[in-house]
Design a protein around this nucleic acid. Sequence first.
DNA 1: CACCATGTTCCTTG
DNA 2: CCAAGGAACATGGT
Length: 283
Amino acid sequence: MPELPEVEVLARHLQRLVPGKKIRKVLVGRPKVILPDSLPHFRETLLGATFVGLSRRGKYLLFQLRRAKTREPFTLLGHLGMTGRMYLAPKTIPLPKHAAVVLDLGREQFVYEDTRYFGRLTLDLTSVTSLGPEPLSENFLAESFGQALKRSQQAIKVKLLDQSLVAGVGNIYASEALYQARIAPQKPANRLTTKQVQALWSAIRSVLTAAIENGSTLPLNLAGGGSDGLFYFGLGAGATDYYGERLEVYDRAGEPCLQCKRPIRRIVQAARSTFFCPHCQRK
DNA sequence: CACCATGTTCCTTG
DNA sequence: CCAAGGAACATGGT
Protein backbone atom coordinates (compact mmCIF):
# COMPACT_ATOMS: atom_id res chain seq x y z
CA MET A 1 0.00 0.00 0.00
CA PRO A 2 0.64 3.09 -0.32
CA GLU A 3 2.16 4.48 2.78
CA LEU A 4 1.16 7.71 4.49
CA PRO A 5 2.16 10.08 1.66
CA GLU A 6 0.28 8.17 -1.00
CA VAL A 7 -2.80 7.92 1.16
CA GLU A 8 -2.58 11.62 2.00
CA VAL A 9 -2.42 12.61 -1.66
CA LEU A 10 -5.30 10.30 -2.45
CA ALA A 11 -7.33 11.70 0.45
CA ARG A 12 -6.83 15.27 -0.74
CA HIS A 13 -7.81 14.26 -4.22
CA LEU A 14 -10.98 12.39 -3.26
CA GLN A 15 -11.92 15.05 -0.75
CA ARG A 16 -12.78 17.42 -3.52
CA LEU A 17 -14.68 14.80 -5.51
CA VAL A 18 -16.89 12.80 -3.17
CA PRO A 19 -18.68 15.24 -0.85
CA GLY A 20 -22.32 15.60 -1.73
CA LYS A 21 -22.49 12.36 -3.67
CA LYS A 22 -25.12 9.81 -2.79
CA ILE A 23 -24.77 6.05 -2.89
CA ARG A 24 -27.44 4.47 -5.04
CA LYS A 25 -26.16 0.92 -5.30
CA VAL A 26 -23.63 -1.12 -3.41
CA LEU A 27 -21.75 -3.91 -5.12
CA VAL A 28 -19.42 -6.08 -3.09
CA GLY A 29 -17.25 -8.11 -5.40
CA ARG A 30 -15.12 -9.64 -2.66
CA PRO A 31 -16.84 -9.88 0.72
CA LYS A 32 -13.60 -10.40 2.63
CA VAL A 33 -12.67 -6.72 2.20
CA ILE A 34 -15.66 -5.52 4.22
CA LEU A 35 -14.92 -7.76 7.20
CA PRO A 36 -15.82 -7.86 9.97
CA ASP A 37 -18.99 -6.22 8.65
CA SER A 38 -21.69 -8.53 7.39
CA LEU A 39 -22.83 -8.03 3.84
CA PRO A 40 -26.38 -7.02 4.83
CA HIS A 41 -25.19 -4.52 7.42
CA PHE A 42 -22.68 -2.98 5.02
CA ARG A 43 -25.22 -2.63 2.23
CA GLU A 44 -28.05 -1.36 4.38
CA THR A 45 -25.87 1.27 6.01
CA LEU A 46 -24.37 2.58 2.80
CA LEU A 47 -27.39 2.47 0.55
CA GLY A 48 -28.80 5.96 0.24
CA ALA A 49 -26.04 7.52 2.33
CA THR A 50 -24.26 10.69 1.24
CA PHE A 51 -20.56 11.48 1.43
CA VAL A 52 -19.81 14.57 3.44
CA GLY A 53 -16.05 14.54 3.95
CA LEU A 54 -12.84 12.62 4.08
CA SER A 55 -9.76 12.51 6.26
CA ARG A 56 -6.71 10.35 6.80
CA ARG A 57 -5.25 8.65 9.83
CA GLY A 58 -1.99 6.77 9.32
CA LYS A 59 -2.56 4.74 6.18
CA TYR A 60 -6.32 4.74 6.65
CA LEU A 61 -8.91 6.80 4.84
CA LEU A 62 -11.91 7.91 6.89
CA PHE A 63 -14.94 8.68 4.79
CA GLN A 64 -17.56 10.71 6.60
CA LEU A 65 -21.08 9.97 5.47
CA ARG A 66 -24.64 10.71 6.48
CA ARG A 67 -27.40 8.14 6.59
CA ALA A 68 -30.22 8.31 4.14
CA LYS A 69 -33.19 9.29 6.29
CA THR A 70 -31.92 10.07 9.76
CA ARG A 71 -29.04 12.20 8.44
CA GLU A 72 -27.02 10.57 11.16
CA PRO A 73 -23.26 10.79 10.56
CA PHE A 74 -21.05 7.72 10.40
CA THR A 75 -17.60 6.74 9.20
CA LEU A 76 -16.50 4.31 6.53
CA LEU A 77 -12.93 3.15 6.92
CA GLY A 78 -10.70 2.40 3.97
CA HIS A 79 -7.28 0.81 3.77
CA LEU A 80 -5.44 0.00 0.55
CA GLY A 81 -3.43 -2.96 1.74
CA MET A 82 -0.58 -3.54 -0.70
CA THR A 83 -2.33 -3.15 -4.01
CA GLY A 84 -5.56 -1.29 -3.37
CA ARG A 85 -6.78 1.71 -5.37
CA MET A 86 -9.79 3.90 -4.84
CA TYR A 87 -11.08 6.28 -7.45
CA LEU A 88 -14.14 7.67 -9.17
CA ALA A 89 -14.81 6.47 -12.66
CA PRO A 90 -17.47 6.97 -15.28
CA LYS A 91 -19.95 4.11 -15.42
CA THR A 92 -19.26 3.63 -19.08
CA ILE A 93 -15.89 1.99 -18.55
CA PRO A 94 -15.75 -1.71 -17.63
CA LEU A 95 -15.01 -2.67 -14.04
CA PRO A 96 -11.46 -3.78 -13.29
CA LYS A 97 -10.73 -7.45 -12.87
CA HIS A 98 -10.31 -7.19 -9.11
CA ALA A 99 -13.16 -4.86 -8.21
CA ALA A 100 -13.56 -5.37 -4.47
CA VAL A 101 -16.35 -2.83 -3.84
CA VAL A 102 -18.16 -0.52 -6.22
CA LEU A 103 -20.51 2.24 -5.09
CA ASP A 104 -22.88 3.64 -7.65
CA LEU A 105 -23.00 7.42 -7.24
CA GLY A 106 -25.36 8.20 -10.08
CA ARG A 107 -23.35 9.62 -12.91
CA GLU A 108 -20.11 8.08 -11.63
CA GLN A 109 -19.02 5.22 -9.50
CA PHE A 110 -16.62 4.90 -6.62
CA VAL A 111 -14.33 1.95 -7.32
CA TYR A 112 -12.20 0.15 -4.80
CA GLU A 113 -10.06 -2.39 -6.62
CA ASP A 114 -7.43 -4.53 -5.02
CA THR A 115 -5.55 -7.30 -6.77
CA ARG A 116 -4.35 -8.98 -3.63
CA TYR A 117 -7.37 -8.07 -1.51
CA PHE A 118 -5.28 -7.18 1.53
CA GLY A 119 -7.11 -3.88 1.94
CA ARG A 120 -10.40 -3.01 3.63
CA LEU A 121 -13.50 -0.93 3.21
CA THR A 122 -15.49 -1.38 6.37
CA LEU A 123 -17.68 0.19 9.02
CA ASP A 124 -15.56 -1.38 11.73
CA LEU A 125 -13.25 1.27 13.14
CA THR A 126 -11.40 -0.72 15.77
CA SER A 127 -8.10 -0.82 13.88
CA VAL A 128 -7.59 2.94 14.02
CA THR A 129 -7.77 3.00 17.80
CA SER A 130 -4.39 1.33 18.21
CA LEU A 131 -2.51 3.75 15.97
CA GLY A 132 0.31 5.85 17.32
CA PRO A 133 0.65 9.60 16.71
CA GLU A 134 0.42 11.21 13.31
CA PRO A 135 4.03 11.90 12.38
CA LEU A 136 3.26 15.25 10.80
CA SER A 137 1.16 16.55 13.64
CA GLU A 138 2.19 18.32 16.82
CA ASN A 139 1.23 15.16 18.68
CA PHE A 140 4.36 13.50 17.43
CA LEU A 141 6.99 14.49 19.95
CA ALA A 142 10.65 13.52 19.74
CA GLU A 143 10.68 12.93 23.44
CA SER A 144 7.81 10.44 23.64
CA PHE A 145 9.08 8.83 20.47
CA GLY A 146 12.41 8.25 22.22
CA GLN A 147 10.68 6.91 25.32
CA ALA A 148 8.80 4.36 23.26
CA LEU A 149 11.97 3.29 21.49
CA LYS A 150 13.64 2.68 24.82
CA ARG A 151 11.14 -0.04 25.61
CA SER A 152 12.15 -2.18 22.65
CA GLN A 153 15.22 -4.04 21.61
CA GLN A 154 13.91 -4.75 18.16
CA ALA A 155 15.93 -3.51 15.21
CA ILE A 156 14.96 0.10 14.63
CA LYS A 157 13.84 -0.56 11.05
CA VAL A 158 11.41 -3.23 12.21
CA LYS A 159 10.19 -0.98 15.01
CA LEU A 160 9.39 1.81 12.57
CA LEU A 161 6.86 -0.46 10.89
CA ASP A 162 4.97 -0.74 14.17
CA GLN A 163 1.89 1.44 13.59
CA SER A 164 1.37 1.92 17.32
CA LEU A 165 4.71 3.70 17.53
CA VAL A 166 4.08 6.14 14.68
CA ALA A 167 1.22 5.88 12.23
CA GLY A 168 1.84 5.71 8.52
CA VAL A 169 5.49 4.76 8.05
CA GLY A 170 5.82 1.70 5.84
CA ASN A 171 8.59 -0.37 4.36
CA ILE A 172 9.75 2.20 1.83
CA TYR A 173 9.85 5.29 4.00
CA ALA A 174 11.34 3.38 6.94
CA SER A 175 14.46 2.75 4.85
CA GLU A 176 14.40 6.29 3.53
CA ALA A 177 14.15 7.86 6.98
CA LEU A 178 16.98 5.76 8.43
CA TYR A 179 19.17 6.61 5.48
CA GLN A 180 18.53 10.30 5.92
CA ALA A 181 19.18 10.04 9.66
CA ARG A 182 22.32 7.95 8.98
CA ILE A 183 21.27 5.20 11.38
CA ALA A 184 21.97 1.50 10.78
CA PRO A 185 18.66 -0.35 10.35
CA GLN A 186 19.86 -3.27 12.50
CA LYS A 187 20.49 -1.09 15.51
CA PRO A 188 18.29 -2.06 18.47
CA ALA A 189 15.68 0.63 19.08
CA ASN A 190 16.70 1.06 22.70
CA ARG A 191 20.29 1.78 21.77
CA LEU A 192 19.75 4.89 19.72
CA THR A 193 21.39 7.93 21.23
CA THR A 194 19.31 10.99 22.04
CA LYS A 195 20.84 12.64 19.06
CA GLN A 196 19.88 9.75 16.79
CA VAL A 197 16.32 9.78 18.10
CA GLN A 198 16.11 13.46 17.27
CA ALA A 199 17.61 12.89 13.82
CA LEU A 200 15.21 10.04 13.12
CA TRP A 201 12.19 11.99 14.35
CA SER A 202 13.16 14.78 12.04
CA ALA A 203 13.96 12.46 9.10
CA ILE A 204 10.58 10.75 9.34
CA ARG A 205 8.84 14.08 9.07
CA SER A 206 10.97 15.41 6.28
CA VAL A 207 10.85 12.24 4.20
CA LEU A 208 7.06 12.04 4.47
CA THR A 209 6.58 15.73 3.81
CA ALA A 210 8.78 15.64 0.74
CA ALA A 211 6.93 12.61 -0.60
CA ILE A 212 3.56 14.32 -0.17
CA GLU A 213 4.83 17.39 -1.96
CA ASN A 214 6.24 15.31 -4.75
CA GLY A 215 3.06 13.28 -5.06
CA SER A 216 0.90 16.37 -5.07
CA THR A 217 2.57 17.63 -8.22
CA LEU A 218 1.71 14.52 -10.18
CA PRO A 219 -1.34 14.34 -12.39
CA LEU A 220 -3.99 12.15 -10.82
CA ASN A 221 -5.78 10.69 -13.70
CA LEU A 222 -7.76 8.20 -11.83
CA ALA A 223 -9.80 6.24 -14.24
CA GLY A 224 -8.33 3.47 -16.32
CA GLY A 225 -4.62 2.93 -16.46
CA GLY A 226 -3.64 6.32 -15.18
CA SER A 227 -2.06 7.32 -11.95
CA ASP A 228 -3.95 6.98 -8.74
CA GLY A 229 -1.52 8.23 -6.19
CA LEU A 230 1.01 5.46 -6.54
CA PHE A 231 3.87 7.76 -7.17
CA TYR A 232 6.60 6.04 -5.22
CA PHE A 233 7.30 3.22 -7.61
CA GLY A 234 6.83 4.84 -10.90
CA LEU A 235 3.37 4.00 -12.01
CA GLY A 236 3.76 0.68 -13.61
CA ALA A 237 4.99 0.08 -17.10
CA GLY A 238 5.91 3.04 -19.17
CA ALA A 239 5.22 5.67 -16.57
CA THR A 240 8.48 5.73 -14.68
CA ASP A 241 10.32 7.97 -17.07
CA TYR A 242 7.46 10.40 -16.99
CA TYR A 243 7.22 10.81 -13.25
CA GLY A 244 10.64 11.04 -11.67
CA GLU A 245 11.42 8.83 -8.75
CA ARG A 246 12.39 10.43 -5.49
CA LEU A 247 13.62 7.55 -3.37
CA GLU A 248 17.25 7.63 -2.27
CA VAL A 249 17.87 4.07 -1.06
CA TYR A 250 14.77 1.96 -1.43
CA ASP A 251 15.10 -0.65 -4.16
CA ARG A 252 18.60 0.57 -5.06
CA ALA A 253 20.62 -2.49 -4.02
CA GLY A 254 24.00 -2.51 -5.75
CA GLU A 255 23.63 1.06 -6.94
CA PRO A 256 25.94 3.75 -5.59
CA CYS A 257 25.03 5.60 -2.42
CA LEU A 258 24.23 9.17 -3.33
CA GLN A 259 26.52 10.32 -0.55
CA CYS A 260 29.59 8.07 -0.62
CA LYS A 261 29.22 6.17 -3.89
CA ARG A 262 29.61 2.78 -2.23
CA PRO A 263 26.97 0.19 -3.13
CA ILE A 264 23.63 0.20 -1.38
CA ARG A 265 22.89 -3.10 0.30
CA ARG A 266 19.69 -5.07 0.73
CA ILE A 267 19.08 -7.16 3.83
CA VAL A 268 15.98 -8.93 5.10
CA GLN A 269 14.46 -7.99 8.46
CA ALA A 270 11.22 -9.48 9.72
CA ALA A 271 10.74 -10.99 6.27
CA ARG A 272 10.86 -7.60 4.55
CA SER A 273 13.56 -5.92 2.51
CA THR A 274 15.62 -3.16 4.03
CA PHE A 275 17.92 -0.99 1.92
CA PHE A 276 20.77 0.99 3.42
CA CYS A 277 24.30 2.22 2.98
CA PRO A 278 26.65 0.21 5.23
CA HIS A 279 29.14 3.04 5.15
CA CYS A 280 26.92 6.04 5.85
CA GLN A 281 24.70 4.12 8.28
CA ARG A 282 27.23 2.50 10.59
CA LYS A 283 26.64 0.86 13.90
C1' DC B 1 9.50 -23.23 -11.00
C1' DA B 2 11.59 -19.71 -7.71
C1' DC B 3 11.49 -15.44 -5.57
C1' DC B 4 9.81 -10.86 -4.85
C1' DA B 5 6.17 -7.21 -3.84
C1' DT B 6 3.76 -0.30 -0.88
C1' DG B 7 0.55 -4.39 4.95
C1' DT B 8 -1.89 -6.15 8.89
C1' DT B 9 -3.48 -9.74 11.88
C1' DC B 10 -3.34 -13.93 14.14
C1' DC B 11 -0.94 -17.57 16.43
C1' DT B 12 2.68 -19.23 18.88
C1' DT B 13 6.66 -19.05 22.05
C1' DG B 14 9.27 -17.21 25.73
C1' DC C 1 0.07 -9.15 30.17
C1' DC C 2 4.00 -8.21 26.96
C1' DA C 3 7.64 -8.67 23.34
C1' DA C 4 9.06 -10.87 19.33
C1' DG C 5 9.05 -14.04 15.43
C1' DG C 6 6.71 -16.27 11.84
C1' DA C 7 2.91 -17.67 9.01
C1' DA C 8 -1.13 -16.47 6.62
C1' DC C 9 -3.81 -13.83 3.48
C1' DA C 10 -3.88 -13.58 -2.52
C1' DT C 11 -2.30 -12.33 -6.97
C1' DG C 12 0.90 -10.99 -10.29
C1' DG C 13 5.55 -9.63 -12.17
C1' DT C 14 10.18 -11.00 -13.31
